[in-house]
Each structure stands twice: as structure tokens, then as C-alpha cells.
Design a protein around this nucleic acid. Structure first.
Lengths: 210, 210, 210, 210
DNA sequence: CATGAATGAGATTTCATTCAT
DNA sequence: AATGAATGAAATCTCATTCAT
């Protein structure tokens, strides 16, 4: 998602022209520093240092500190929303398969950068709470797609008809956020595959044995 | 929870002692201000104003800003741990009944002050992440008790034996935190009882119809 | 004008309560530093240093840097407007006497602090130009009173009926500003009394001999 | 005034030389931007934009921001000094005619670009005050010529022998600066010819009727 | 104990200036 | 000569904390 891809080559050709690679570098550095220190204690100068640019350069690419965080979440939810949309439109999937796929997407987005999961756990709620009006619309789009998938499952009788949509989507987001957070703190000791499996199981069948 | 309780008497006996009513007032004010503005943007002077005391007075009861937040979570988790312990020791309950009761406790703690749920959603993770070493031990105690209850349920064959404890406790905490957060934003429109019911249902049976 | 007067005594009694003397000290320091370095190059920290307070203290008394300059001009023009009003209402004066008195007031205001004349010359125009909407209303009041006095003089046939009011008031302000500025640069070598006399003479009779 | 004049030819002969048209464009842009925003708030990048060149190009023609302002005033006063010198040497003029001519020159210089009058009012004093040592010598030359003209008028008995030269030259400059400033703010509503006439009248005969 | 004026360290942000292309 | 992305020094303003009264 946040990688520069083919643009890296352009850098070699035009070193003095605004490089897309630099915006990416700053975003990656910001994810790391925000995750380590928390958004408020994180200093722009440290982000710049990690990105290998000067402090002022950050302001060539982002209006202010908050915009960096908004951009991070914006890009993340854009990826999620896009993939969730593909799942919703995939007629080859059962309702249950769609639910599994939904969960996989979230895990896949965080897998390459555990720090993103920390941000999700630590800063997402607060930013949403304080700046709902400017929060990336991609987040709402993602929630809507998820809701559609659940409704479809209920209609088809696969999901329990008593399931409350508003509750569920927040419960799922919250539960997975916390689980991912635990993993991100020590990604090597906890197997992401295990969490993934547990998440699906618990969401689908609950904790009671049957 | 956060009231001074029996301490009120101390005031009468020794007028020179710190007035417990003020500590409580400051804690209540802090919950409100922290929830409204977020921990970092909240100003001590505003907390003092809401509590009806002078800025300096806050520092007679708390060492610094962070201690206030730690105290809030400490008191909250102490109440939860205490009641969860009672549930764990209540031999008259089934495993499933205990799970229901666990959930009820969390809701009951947040019910009188929706702002507490906002704090739980917005600041708990970050504080835990940055200051695990000084985070109130009551939180760990509560988690341990919950774990015990779940193990007991698994042993008795009521809870699925594949349920992962570490995962579950975080998943439950996270899911409920987010659900409570939604409610706290608009406590009048959403019925707490509904969320409570959905939470229990989902946790126990999952989202698939059976 | 900007002196603390009797308030100095209160300082001795309540050293820790917001002293009016401090606001005055900051204003005096600001006049000095603004005059020396120019408004934009002047640092708040240097003003604080000159005033014998900490940097943050400046912000207890003034919202921001610009407010300090606005307050300086506001107080200055308030004094001028008040004394000009007294002159306008003094029925014992001839029109010519009023003109003389007008000029004397401006000189008297600047006499105790030559730096004020430097500010008048260097920063007044720019501030007025950039922030006409928030510029102290006392300035406009003063101009209106001056205009009234001139109209009266014209009506009585003492002042030339061809004199243009708008032009005159700006011409007078500008001319005196520049003259005061020259004096303020080296107050000891140039006699203020001389400038005062020349200003009156030139304004009244012009430069041609008669 | 600020046009390249004969330099245009250089361009044709040696294409490699700096294009005089660009220096002129930058100066014109600077007058506009400095007048609009004030010297300190004006950004080089904005001046470059108005001039139709890149930011870095500005530094090919001027050492730094301050040099641009110095150059503007230098060119302006060079024109004034040159024309004032011609007036001083014109034996066909009376002393009074010379005074009129002096004033006309200042108005003629500002007439084509009202923004120059704004700069004169807002930035001239401050720059002179802070950088007397590097201020364009053309300004001093102009003042000296004016002084000579006045002395001549006094000698011939046309100007009042009590007129103080130092005072007068500053008073006149200041008065006219302010008057021009008023005009420049709204050049269409106020007739420059009117101000010109009033300025001459007031300076010569004063405000008293005779 | 209570007060609240005073403190001053610290961080974001701006923008004149540079320099590789 | 021209470009404009990059630089990084510098300064305003905030606010947790202190402490004299």
C-alpha cells in the first residue's frame, strides 16, 4: 500500500524533482514513530529523521502533523474498502466465506507493518472522536460495505437474524483491533495465523461449545 | 465507584486532612474533560475549573497529569476485578451465567458515566502501551480472573475447548470497548440494554445462525 | 500614560497576585524593543527579559505579539483623543490656539519616551494598513476630533476655506510623525521645543515669507 | 522608472547575459507584493510567481530579500534626485516655482504605481532606521538637493528665514508620504491632482487664512 | 490546605536561501 | 541562466508544574 513501487526508478533520473518516494518514506517513518511514541509525543523532527529528510520537507508533502495521521488511515481504509468491495461483489463466495475474507483483509493489511495495528488500536478512536468531520471517508465506505455483506448473510439465513448491524460492525472492529494490537507488540512470538483463525471461529460460532 | 465513601468521616474528625470530596470531584471532572478533549489536549486548569478547585489544588491530590488518568483506570478496574472475583467465587452460577455476569459488570461500571466508556476506548490502549510498567495492577488482576472463569467453562465442557484465552480476553475487551464507545457518544438514542444483549449473544453463539 | 502609578504599592502587599505593574512593565519593554529592532524582528523573549518576567508571562497579559502593539497604540491614541477632546471643548481657546494645543499634545505624549515616536513612524502605518479592522478605535476618534477643530476654524474664517480636511489631517500626522522620528533618534541633540515651534509655524503660515 | 531602458539591447547582443526584463519583472512584482502584504510577510516565492520566474531565479538578480527593497527605494530616489537636480539647476525658475516642481516630481514618480506610495509609507522609515548604513545614497542626495533649493529660497527672501531646514525636509517628506498613502489605498476615488494642489498650498501658505 | 500567577522548556510550523539538475 | 525541491534555523505560543502568599 504505502510503498513507492516503480517510482523508485524515477528518483535516480530526477533527484531534485519532488519524488513520490519521499512522501512514502515520510508515511512509513510516521507509522513507526507514531506507533512507538504515540501521536502526541511523536515529534515531526524525529519522523523526518527516520524518513531521511529534513524537518521542513515533511511540510512539503503534508499540511501539518494531523494530516499525516489522516493520510495513513485514509490509505489504509482505502485498501480495505477496495478489497472488501471486491469480496462483496464476488458471487462465487458464500456468506460465510465472505465473512472469512473480510477478516483476512484486515489481517493482510496489517501483516507487513505491525506498527499499523498499534496505530489502529491507539490512535484511530481518538482521531475519529475528535475529527469525525475530516476523517477519511474511506473508513465509512468500508463500514458500509461490511454492513451490506452482513445484511446479505442475514437475508440468506446464514447469519443470525437477531444480529445487530451497528453493534456488530463496531464489535468486530474493536475486537480485531485489540487482537491485532496484542500481536503487533510481539509479532514473532504470537502467530498471526493463529489469531486469524481464532477471530474467525469466535465471530462465527461464539465461545460456547455446540 | 469514585465517591469518597467512608472517608467522608475523616473530614469531620481532622479538618486539616485533605478533603476526600475534592479528590473525587477532580476525578469526575477529569473523566469528563479527558473524554471531551482527549487526554493530551485536556488542560489541568480546565479540570480544576470543572472540579471547582484551583489549578494548584489538583497537585495536592495527584502527582501529575498522568497520575490522574492512571487513578481513573485503577479505580475502574478495581471495581471490575472485585465484582468479577465475586462472580468467579459464586458457586451458584453456571459457566454461561458467569460469562453473562462478567459482561454485565463492565456495562454497569460504565452506565452511570458514559464518558468513562469514551476514555476506555480512546486512552486505555495508549496508556497501557506507553506505561505498561506503571499501569494499575487491578487491570491485570481483572484479566486473570476472567481467564480463570473461561478456563473453568472450558474444563466443564461449556466453552469450546479450542477457544484461545489470550485472544479471547483481548477480543472481548476490544469489542465491548468499541460497542460501549458507540453508546457513550449518544447514550440516549442507543439503549444500553440492547447492546448488552447483543454482546452476550454474539460472544456466546457467534454470528452464524444455528 | 503607561505607568503603573499608585499600583506599585499593591505589589508589595500581594506579590503573587496578578500585578498591574507587570502589564505596564511589558508594555514599556515592548515599546523599547519594538523601536530598537522593529516589530517583526523583535522577539517576545527579549521583551520579557526587558520587562523582568518570563516569556510565558507575556501571554498572561496579551493574547499574542500583535496585541501588544495594538495595545500600545490604543493607549497612546486614547490619551491623545482625550486631551484633544478637552481642547475641542475648551471655549476659552481661539481656533489658532486650538491648533497649537493639538500639536502640543502629540509632542507631550512622545516626550517621556522617544521610542514611542519611533514606533509611530515605523510601525503605525503598516499595522493600520494590514489590520484596519482591529486597529484601536481611539485612533479614529482622535482623527474625528481633529477634523472638528479644523472645521470650526474654517467656519470662523481663521483657517483657509480651501483647506482640505482629509488631506490636512493625514499631512499633519505624517509630517509630525517624521519630525518626531528624527528627534527620537537623537533626542539629546535636537531640542524638542524647537521642533514643536517649527511645526506650529510651518503648519500655520507655510514656508513662504509674508 | 524601473524599466530596463537601454539595457534591452544587451539581451540581443549576448543572449547568455542575465535578462534585464526579468530583473524589472521581479522589482515590479516585489513592489506589488511588498505593498499588499508588507515586507516581512511577503514571501519570495510569491514575488517570483508574480514575476513569472522560479523562486531561485530571484537570487540570480538579488542577493537577498532586503536587497530587493533597497533596490526599489534606490531606483525611486535616483529618479527623484535626478529630476530635483534638474530643477535646482534650472535658472528659469523662481524659488516658489522650484518648490512646486519638487512636489510635482514626487507625485509623478508615484503616479504610475500607487503601490510605490504604500511602500514609501509603510517600509521606508523602518528600513532607513534599521539599515541607515546601507540605505541607498540616492536618498541622501535627494535630500541635499532639496535643502539647497530651500536655502536658495531663504537667501532670496522668498522663503521664511526662520524655516528650519532639517525639520522642513522631514516634515515635507512625512506629510506627503502620508497623503500619498491615502491616495494609493483608493487611487480612483481621490484625485491625485487635488492632493497635489493641497500639498503645495499648505506647504507654501500654511493653514491660516490671510 | 488552598490558591492562581508565574514559569520556561519544548514543539510545530514557516520561509529565506541553497544547490543539484 | 533557470529551476523548484529541499533545507534547517528560528520564533511564537502552550501548558504542566511550581511556589510564594
Amino acid at each position: 500500500m504505502l510503498t513507492g513501487g516503480y517510482n523508485e526508478q524515477r528518483v535516480i533520473i530526477h533527484m531534485r524533482y519532488k519524488e513520490p518516494g519521499k512522501e512514502t518514506a515520510i508515511l512509513h517513518a510516521a507509522i513507526k514513530v507514531f506507533a512507538e511514541q504515540g501521536y502526541h509525543k511523536a515529534q515531526i523532527s524525529r519522523i523526518a529523521e527516520h524518513a531521511g529528510v529534513a524537518t521542513g520537507t515533511v511540510y512539503l508533502y503534508f499540511g501539518n502533523k494531523r494530516d499525516i495521521l489522516l493520510k495513513i488511515f485514509g490509505e489504509m481504509w482505502a485498501v480495505v474498502a477496495k478489497q472488501w468491495a471486491a469480496i462483496a461483489n464476488d458471487t462465487g463466495l458464500t456468506a460465510e466465506g465472505r465473512l472469512d475474507a473480510l477478516i483476512d483483509v484486515v489481517f493482510d493489511v496489517c501483516a507487513p507493518q505491525p506498527e499499523l495495528a498499534i496505530l489502529l488500536a491507539n490512535e484511530h478512536s481518538l482521531l475519529l472522536h475528535n475529527h469525525r468531520e475530516i476523517f477519511p471517508k474511506e473508513y465509512d465506505q468500508a463500514l458500509e460495505i461490511a454492513q451490506k455483506i452482513i445484511i446479505d448473510g442475514v437475508t440468506k439465513g446464514v447469519f443470525d437474524k437477531d444480529a445487530d448491524l451497528t453493534f456488530l460492525r463496531h464489535f468486530i472492529i474493536g475486537g480485531m483491533r485489540e487482537a491485532l494490537h496484542q500481536w503487533s507488540i510481539n509479532p514473532k512470538e504470537i502467530q498471526l495465523g493463529d489469531i486469524r483463525r481464532h477471530a474467525k471461529r469466535t465471530l462465527k460460532h461464539g465461545i460456547l461449545s455446540h
